[in-house]
Design a protein around this nucleic acid. Structure first.
Length: 433
DNA sequence: TCTGGGGTCCTAGGACCC
DNA sequence: TCTGGGGTCCTAGGACCC
């Protein structure tokens, strides 16, 4: 039986989330910035129309668009995570064959659902999601995921589709692909585009007209799958919701630092975040990697970057063990005389939490059991009272000025335009003006 | 002054083994 | 006279995605 896939994609996700609580910004350009208010990571339709490019550094936004009335927000992942979870719940409810692909996208498999009118089904669901959450989504429906992504593009760009576009015949497929730039195809990136353009391939349809072996020799097996999907051959597997195979937490700092204690504190915090993410997916890891880097944009300063790993014979997921492993690593690679801009922690070689494969020489099972109970208790306190209610000593930033308390992780990132966490923190709701 | 963060998969080449 | 060949594993780097 032929399959039918739908892709659901929140329109300009982060901007739409901010607008839910700021309806005064509807119809106006809105942008959301990366951590430290570094550069533009999301743009509303109006912001795109005004010519603001993706990835524009914030300071250049001010230089290049001095007179543009644009709503600017620091990223607020707590808010986006909560609102998109509500959107996903509605979609999952409408279709049980559901796979969440990213924070703002989900695939559904509709073939087994006996939907008579796919277009109406999609349009109705769009309306429901908008009404219940305030978030607009676009829906593309076709026989392969890649074609569904094309349909989704049409649904987004042309109001006539009423947010849902269906490609379900060969005629529609041909027409859609002939009007579709090949660079917009899911799976075709910048490097592939260069190669395609050399051979005068500009539309998705042009791409379908070359031979399979040409695609394989010019690129690789992944590109062949994309090529087949555009022909209507379903060949990109729907991955099960598997646990992540690696987890990374990294940040650029608001300024630069040459101070080991500060760097060490950053690394502690990132390692602690990795440990939390690991436990949330009920996993353990047996490798912790730390990397540090200077500022590549400052060619006038000496550059240095390095990484180091620590492996565990018995896989771990406690904050204590992961942090102490990470600190060993950073100790090894830190060099004085450099100004560091970025650091990160990666946990990998991930496995299911239980049963843990214990090391033959691991005599200290009772210690591990105690650590597990302690970690669970701390997680619970942080869940109830807000994250960072309890942290390790090494996660505390030292405050030089005054004799007050140590600074928190939150203070370490610049976000001057952060919206309140309207939906998840009552403290914030009370302070909404 | 200011330039993001977090993933996955594939491939080529080297090391190593028989 | 004249330096095999094939398999596997690992790793770094490159490509893509959101």
């Amino acid at each position: 039986m032929k399959k039918i896939y739908a892709i659901f994609d929140c329109d300009n996700c982060y901007c739409s989330c901010e607008r839910v609580f700021r309806p005064d910004l509807n119809g106006k350009p809105v942008v959301v910035l990366s951590n430290n208010d570094g550069c533009v990571v999301a743009r509303s339709k109006e912001a795109k129309a005004a010519g603001i490019p993706a990835g524009l550094p914030y300071f250049q936004l001010r230089e290049k668009f001095p007179n543009l009335d644009v709503g600017v927000f620091s990223s607020n992942y707590e808010l986006y995570g909560d609102l998109t979870a509500r959107v996903m719940d509605i979609i999952r409810d409408a279709c049980p064959y559901f796979y969440r692909y990213s924070i703002d996208e989900a695939f559904c498999e509709l073939s087994r659902m006996n939907i008579k009118d796919l277009k109406k089904w999609g349009e109705d669901l769009h309306k429901k999601i908008l009404q219940w959450t305030g978030i607009p989504v676009s829906i593309g429906i076709a026989e392969t995921k890649t074609l569904a992504k094309c349909a989704d593009r049409y649904a987004k760009d042309y109001p006539g589709y009423h947010h849902c576009c269906v490609i379900d015949t060969d005629e529609k497929r041909e027409k859609a692909l002939k009007g579709f730039p090949v660079k917009e195809v899911w799976g075709i990136g910048r490097r592939y585009l260069e190669r395609l353009e050399r051979d005068d391939i500009h539309t998705a349809w042009d791409f379908t007209q070359v031979g399979r072996s040409w695609v394989h020799s010019a690129f690789n097996i992944v590109a062949v799958r994309t090529w087949e999907e555009l022909q209507g051959i379903d060949c990109i597997p729907t991955e099960e919701m598997t646990a992540r195979k690696s987890i990374c937490t990294s940040r650029s700092f608001p300024g630069m630092t040459d101070d080991f204690t500060t760097l060490r504190t950053h690394v502690s915090n990132y390692a602690a975040r990795c440990a939390e993410k690991l436990r949330r997916q009920h996993s353990v890891c047996s490798l912790v990697t730390v990397f540090i880097d200077t500022n590549h944009f400052r060619q006038d300063l000496p550059q240095y970057g390095n990484g180091s790993s620590k492996s565990f014979l018995t896989p771990v997921n406690s904050t204590q063990e992961i942090v102490s492993g990470a600190l060993e690593c950073v100790q090894k690679i830190f060099r004085t005389g450099y100004k560091y801009k970025r650091a990160g922690v990666i946990v990998s070689c991930i496995d299911k939490e239980s049963p843990v494969q214990t090391d033959f020489f691991d005599y200290d099972a009772s210690r591990r059991e105690k650590l597990k109970r302690l970690t669970a208790a701390v997680d619970n306190i942080n869940k109830v009272n807000g994250s960072e209610t309890i942290v390790l000593g090494s996660q505390q930033y030292t405050r030089k000025e005054g004799k007050g308390k140590a600074g928190s992780f939150r203070d370490a990132i610049k976000h001057d335009f952060r919206s309140p966490n309207y939906t998840t923190r009552w403290q914030d709701i009370l302070t909404v003006k």
